[in-house]
Structure formats: C-alpha cells, structure tokens
C-alpha cells in the first residue's frame, strides 16, 4: 500500500525539527511539544526518562485527531519504547516528532496495550521506522475479528482525512504471560492479563522509576468501557493493585495518577454495575429494560458516562446471566 503523501510530508517535516534535539539529557526535564493539523500534542515528563502524551476525554473525532488515549514513552540508554500508537497517523507522527526532540535514541519497540483503535491506529508510523510491535498473545486474533469493522466504522466517525494511511498492523512479538524488554539501563516488564477491559490487555512496568503503564485496565475520571469481561476485570483488580508502582499512567485520565488509589473509583463503578445487573437478572427483567437503569447512581461521577454506561451494562448483563 503506498504511503500517503500527507504522512510523508509530516515525517520529513518533523525530521528537520528533530535534528536540533540531539543534545538530549538537557531536555529530559521539559515537556516536548509537537503540533499537527492544528492540534498541539504535549508530551510531558512523568519521571526520569518517562514521558506521556495525555489524550482528551472525548470520543475520537476529526477535531481531536483521534488523540483520546494516553500514550507513553520510556527512554533507555540504548533504545526507546513507546506505549500505544494513538488514534491516527497524525497523532503517531506528532509523538515521534516529540520523541525526536527528547532523544536521538531509536524507537525500538512499540507496545500495544490492547486492540482498541485509539491505541493502535498509529501503528503504521512505527512499522515505517522499523520498530518491533509488541502485544498480548490474543491481540492478533482480536484484530483479525475486528480490524475491518474498525476501519469502516471509524471512517464514518472521524472522516477520510484522519483515516489516511491507517492500517491494522498486528504485533509480531507476542507476550504469553510476562516479557522483559531491555532498553539499556532499564528493564520494562510486560504482563499479559486474562480477559478484563478486553481479552488482550497488557501492562508495562518501568522498574527504574516504578511507573506503571496500565493501558485501559485503568480509567481515571473518564468512564471505563467494558469489551472483555466484567468478572475478569474485578477478579484481577487485586493482583493489579499489588503492583508496587509509584505512579500510574492510566489508559484514559490525568497523567500520572496515584497508585493504587487510581483503581478505587473504577472498582466502585463495576461493583455498582454488577450489583444492579445481578438484581435485574434475579428479578427476571429483560436486558433491554435492565440497561436503562443499571449503574445510574454513578452518573455525574464520570465523564462520558452517557456515552458508555448503557453499553457497559449490556455487556455486563450478557456476561452475568451465566453466573
């Protein structure tokens, strides 16, 4: 597939700005900025050698360039790893440009925390620069089943311009259970989880700074979305909470967040939702009725509640009916 012209222009444009950035460590304390298509992407310094780009709490749209999830960057003495590629090539290339201002080290790994478009639509930009794409062992299968649908439905949602060059590119380095990546001077510990937010959730722990990149296993302030297993998510929350992190970069919400306090509201929401759905099922209420009221006491406590709560309730009902 020919690389789209817009993308080439962006890549070369950013390559120029990256030249001045070879004097790296001085930049480590500062935020790096990159702008694309009128949206400014601010990559902030979270810990020593750890950076994150915070997404906005919105649905993906042409206006936000698909940049709704949090992306991470970890800089070692040999190589850089990026956590999630963002919701468009424009966002991915802006992130690469910002990384170029921070370090001259090559981006060796792109780690996808799971299958959702806001985390993987930028993958082509990383394949282009030769990064190894890393993911949960279930991620290729999940993308097989959904890729065509994502490409179609997001074209409707965010428009042709932002979809330009977006390809579904699966990981080639798969994580069965755990995997360590050596970036030089620091190890990243990757961990594959059982079905929770999706059936292909992966977390990344930087042992040097004890920073946890939780992907969408952790939502802060923005309503968690359920596309895997409610029971699996609740069951694994204890194990998640025992990770000895000093801070977390959640998949959505403020960067960084306190750990493990970042889990508290999410756990409460899912417990409320499970309680309401279980009661509806016991009462013999059909799914179509139950989802209208389940979780209602959480309204007002979350951004995007009305966008996602009923969908979560639908998935929860179909799952909990089998208890």
């Amino acid at each position: 597939m020919p690389i789209d012209r817009v993308r080439r222009k962006l890549v070369s444009g950013f390559a120029c700005t990256a030249v001045s950035a070879a004097m790296l460590p001085c930049c480590l304390g500062r935020a790096a900025l990159a702008a694309a298509g009128g949206v400014e992407f601010k990559v902030r310094n979270v810990a020593d050698g750890v950076f994150a780009l915070q997404g906005v709490d919105e649905l993906m749209s042409a206006a936000n360039q698909g940049a709704i999830s949090n992306l991470g960057v970890v800089v070692g003495t040999d190589a850089v790893a990026v956590i999630d590629s963002g919701g468009s090539l424009i966002e991915a290339n802006a992130l690469l440009a910002a990384i170029g201002k921070i370090t001259a080290m090559p981006v060796r790994y792109l780690i996808n925390t799971h299958m959702h478009p806001d985390h993987i639509f930028g993958n082509a930009a990383f394949q282009e620069i030769g990064a190894t794409i890393v993911g949960h062992h279930n991620l290729p299968r999940a993308l097989e089943a959904r890729g065509a649908f994502y490409l179609q439905s997001f074209r409707q949602q965010i428009g042709d311009a932002l979809m330009k060059g977006v390809e579904i590119i699966p990981p080639t380095l798969l994580v069965d259970d755990r995997l360590q990546l050596d970036l030089g001077g620091r190890m990243l510990e990757l961990r594959a989880w059982k079905a929770a937010h999706t059936d292909n959730d992966l977390t990344v722990f930087d042992s040097a700074t004890r920073t946890l990149f939780a992907g969408d296993l952790v939502f802060v302030g923005s309503l968690p979305t359920l596309d895997g297993s409610l029971l699996g998510w609740l069951r694994q929350m204890d194990a998640l909470a025992t990770i000895g992190a000093a801070r977390v970069v959640p998949g959505h919400g403020p960067v960084p967040a306190d750990w493990p306090e970042a889990l508290t509201a999410e756990r409460r929401y899912f417990e409320v939702l499970a309680r309401d759905i279980r009661k509806a099922i016991a009462d013999g209420m059909p799914l179509s009725e139950a989802v209208k009221t389940a979780g209602a006491s959480e309204r007002g406590k979350w951004r995007l509640f009305d966008e996602y709560n009923e969908r979560n309730a639908t998935a929860a009902f179909a799952e909990l009916e089998w208890e």
Partner: peptide
C-alpha cells in the same frame, strides 16, 4: 448501531470456546 470500538465480535474468545454447548433454561 455502529461505530466506536463496540465491534460485532466475540468479547472473550477463550471463554467462548471453553464453554461452548452449555445451556441454561429459565
């Protein structure tokens, strides 16, 4: 019915295969 990341696909493929054929009647 379209859009977003709610694709018309199986949510938990391993579980679906492991439990295939179970039935429940209410």
């Amino acid at each position: 019915a379209s859009g977003g990341c709610s694709a018309p696909a199986v949510k938990n493929q391993d579980e679906a295969m492991a439990t295939m054929g179970q039935m429940k009647l209410r």
